[in-house]
């Protein structure tokens, strides 16, 4: 478990994060509210929305709450990686919460997440950034809809050992 946590810790996006917006308000206690064309960019993750509240509970970490119509997330594929890790993930929802310590993004309200041709939609979706893993939850009384496109069938090889027709 110790090793897994260390791996997760090393994968968590902790690079510098840049935020841009039309205006911003610093509120007592260190909370910042960004308003208008708000963008948060870290090394691989981009969040966009109309309004973003960023709190910095303790040293170094921060929590961002993005509201938009819709709020959007883009997580670039890992360069040089294979399979799912190479695929970019995009998502949108009425609200997106991102906790930089846990490395978890929570999408709430008409949530929809796409990776390649696969898609998940529901009231609430959780996406673990470092693992690129979706942990969907339907939310009160509504269901989750998952569409997974079958992998394209690989062509038969000469030895005839390809998959059955």
């Amino acid at each position: 478990a110790e090793e897994t946590r260390a791996t997760l810790e090393s994968l968590r996006p902790t690079g510098p994060v840049t935020l841009t917006a039309d205006s911003a308000e610093w509120i007592e206690g260190g909370e910042m509210q960004y308003l208008g064309n708000v963008t948060l960019r870290s090394d691989t993750l981009t969040l966009r929305g109309d309004r973003m509240t960023v709190t910095q509970p303790d040293e170094g970490q921060f929590q961002a709450q993005v509201v938009g119509s819709p709020a959007q997330l883009d997580h670039a594929g890992t360069p040089g990686a294979q399979g799912a890790a190479a695929q970019a993930v995009s998502a949108r929802a009425t609200r997106i919460d991102y906790d930089s310590r846990a490395g978890v993004v929570r999408l709430s309200g008409n949530a929809r997440l796409q990776r390649g041709s696969d898609e998940v939609s529901g009231e609430q979706i959780e996406y673990i950034v470092s693992e690129r893993r979706v942990r969907a939850a339907g939310g009160t009384g509504s269901q989750v809809r998952i569409v997974i496109q079958p992998q394209a069938r690989s062509p038969r090889t000469d030895t005839g050992t390809g998959p059955a027709p």
Partner: peptide
């Protein structure tokens, strides 16, 4: 106007 902020979270 023209806000640009940098957060540098550390572990």
């Amino acid at each position: 106007h023209a806000i640009k902020a940098h957060h540098a979270p550390h572990r």
